[in-house]
Amino acid sequence: MLSTDHDILAAAEAWTREGRGVALATVIETWGSAPRPVGSHLVVDGEGNFLGSVSGGCVEGAVITEGMEAIADGRARVIAFGVADETAWRVGLSCGGRIRVFVEPVT
């Protein structure tokens, strides 16, 4: 079963209740053929366990790393991925699209 946004926010709340550090990533902008729509969520804990998808697999690794950093430093951030950023980011979107993702700790 694929996880829905409902499962993801429910997991974020449940994980927080368990005392785990939690960060939430949300796709806030897309251009071109980005695979996941605006509003899609991914939730990650301090160990890198995650649920959901922001790009269909292309940049999840980097988003999870950013999420773990957000848990550690308590700060929200906006990160961008895509063709134009390929020199700045080691990962890109093979589909040729671009996305911006808001990553925030649950506090």
Partner: peptide, 26 residues
């Protein structure tokens, strides 16, 4: 996101009511 915002979003979804989270990105 604050925990209580997360709890409100989940409670509204469970009650089948829409809600909008407004985030100031700046």
């Amino acid at each position: 996101m604050q925990r209580d915002h997360l709890a409100i979003l989940n409670a509204e979804r469970a009650a089948r009511r829409a809600a909008i989270l407004v985030t100031d990105l700046d």
